[in-house]
């Protein structure tokens, strides 16, 4: 009887110790490309301070992006992005809360590249939308790299493009995610 209790308790204890199933970064990279065929210049923003957390046990994946941290080649573009399009003073943070679909099998203990599908809710510019994207996880030397490329429609997030520049800003924006996650201690 006592043995049984000890076994049970140690199982629970082990589980909490074994919480080495969460991985994170605060320096993930997300870039977007809203260049339209008629754009006079590339409309590309890069953010290198993305927070990303992955729970390998549940497959839950969450990201937080500070909009003001997007950088552009041109200062004026950065100003327009913040002031006119995403209104970063009103909506400073974009968040994604979702999960890797259970169907995909990822062996986090073994190095390798695993294609995955992610579904969840993306909240940007005050609008929440269900999104799904394909990506890949690369497990290597105890770290996990999360990568994905997907497109989102600006209109879905109430980002208005004035008619004057309607053909110079793409309606569909290509988003590239690249986060290298380390074990969360």
């Amino acid at each position: 009887m006592k043995k049984l209790i000890i076994v049970m308790l140690s199982v629970i204890a082990l589980q909490s110790i074994q919480a080495q199933d969460k991985y994170f970064t605060k320096t993930g990279k997300i870039s977007f490309d809203a260049t339209a065929p008629k754009s006079p210049e590339d409309i590309v923003g890069v953010n290198k301070t993305v927070t990303c957390v992955l729970d390998t046990k549940t497959g839950n994946l969450q990201m937080a992006v500070l909009m003001k941290a997007f950088e552009f080649e041109r200062a004026l573009m950065q100003e327009h992005f913040n002031e006119n399009y995403v209104e970063s003073h009103k909506f400073p943070k974009t968040e994604f809360r979702g999960a890797i679909l259970p169907g995909t099998s990822v062996n986090y203990a073994r190095d390798g590249v695993y294609p995955v599908q992610v579904k969840g809710k993306l909240t940007m510019h005050g609008q929440a939308k269900d999104v799904a994207a394909e990506g890949k996880l690369t497990v290597k030397a105890g770290k996990i790299q999360v990568q994905s490329v997907f497109t989102e429609l600006l209109a879905d997030y109430a980002v208005a493009i004035p008619t004057l520049v309607a053909d110079k800003v793409a309606k569909n924006v290509k988003i590239t995610v690249d986060c290298l996650l380390e074990p969360l201690k």
Partner: peptide
């Protein structure tokens, strides 16, 4: 056994519910 299973289950549930971003 039931109690232990419940504990495990609850723990699992808990993990599902937490906002991972808050952990960081």
């Amino acid at each position: 056994v039931v109690f232990c299973l419940f504990c495990l289950y609850a723990q699992g549930m808990n993990a599902q519910e937490t906002v991972l971003l808050k952990l960081v």
